[in-house]
């Protein structure tokens, strides 16, 4: 080692690190490559799948789009619709609440913050029975917000909007100097004007992070949607994809692979394009603790 020049040592260290990286990358993208090759393999069972398919074809994709039992395009559209609406409403709710927690002092403030967190960690699985009953009751009062409707599902998602994100956002509001508020107050601005015209523009990075995370979280939700939605046409993608696992999962591997890949693609692109935003947001939130 000591015989090597500084430059050589550096190249050696790069080489070693790239070798480690290649092993890790293999681990990280292996399932993705596998699903890609399965989706292109016309022999669509798990047993006949191989990393490099014998003959390549789009049969699985064709099957996915044309089988009436699996309306794939409807599922994707449902997912995007539900997730977008939930994201917009949820981020609005969270931002307003976090601003209040950051800027106002009122009795019960700390306890409310604690309670929000504890409610969030309650294992919601059994509450599904109660939520299901609640939505059945909603159905007979206001049918458009009942079971098997996207509106009803979104309502239930919004029930979880006040959660960890409040803490993350409140942390960010706290970092914005109070002097900004003060300058606004001197000018005679109301709280609302200070919030919307002075503070909100500064919050843009964290708003994007929270919006992306909410969108992805809703897009990936499975259990609530599965319990509250009944008809195949109303399913979001995750519930739809789960259909393939019923019965002989390994026999429907090909169409599942195609659907999984197409379903994962939008989120993957969002992540990789906005990587720096997400990393920045997560780590700032994290370092702040």
């Amino acid at each position: 080692m000591s015989n090597l020049t500084f430059q050589q040592q550096r190249y050696l260290s790069y080489a070693v690190r790239w070798l480690i990286a290649l092993i890790l990358i293999f681990f990280s993208i292996f399932p993705v490559l596998w699903i890609l090759s399965s989706s292109l393999n016309p022999a669509n069972t798990l047993a006949s799948a191989s990393l490099i398919p014998q003959n390549i074809g789009l049969d699985n994709y064709r099957q996915l789009f044309t089988t009436p039992e699996t309306p794939f395009l409807t599922w994707i559209w449902n997912s995007i619709k539900i997730s977008s609406i939930t994201t917009v409403l949820s981020v609005t709710i969270t931002t307003l609440a976090a601003f209040a927690f950051s800027r106002f002092r009122f009795t019960g403030r700390i306890n409310m913050l604690k309670a929000i967190l504890l409610i969030q960690v309650f294992p919601g699985l059994l509450a599904m029975i109660a939520i299901f009953t609640l939505m059945t009751q909603f159905e007979s009062i206001i049918p458009m917000f009942g079971l098997d409707t996207h509106a009803g599902l979104i309502l239930v998602y919004l029930g979880g909007a006040m959660g960890v994100n409040i803490w993350l956002m409140k942390g960010f509001f706290d970092t914005i100097p109070r002097a900004i508020d003060e300058s606004g107050m001197v000018e005679g601005a109301s709280h609302w004007q200070i919030f919307s015209q002075l503070i909100l523009p500064l919050m843009q990075p964290i708003l994007i992070v929270v919006a992306i995370l909410t969108f992805i979280g809703t897009y990936g939700d499975f259990i609530l949607a599965r319990i509250l939605l009944k008809s195949t046409d109303q399913y979001p993608l995750m519930v739809g994809l789960f259909i393939f696992t019923s019965g002989q999962f390994s026999q429907k591997w090909g169409p599942f692979a195609a659907g999984a890949l197409l379903g994962a693609l939008p989120i993957m692109i969002v992540y990789l394009v906005l990587q720096d935003y997400i990393v920045g947001g997560l780590t700032q939130g994290a370092v702040k603790g």
Partner: peptide
């Protein structure tokens, strides 16, 4: 970016 990929796919999938 490549090592981030597992994080970018919905976990159900």
């Amino acid at each position: 970016s490549l090592l981030l990929i597992p994080y970018t796919i919905p976990s159900l999938i």
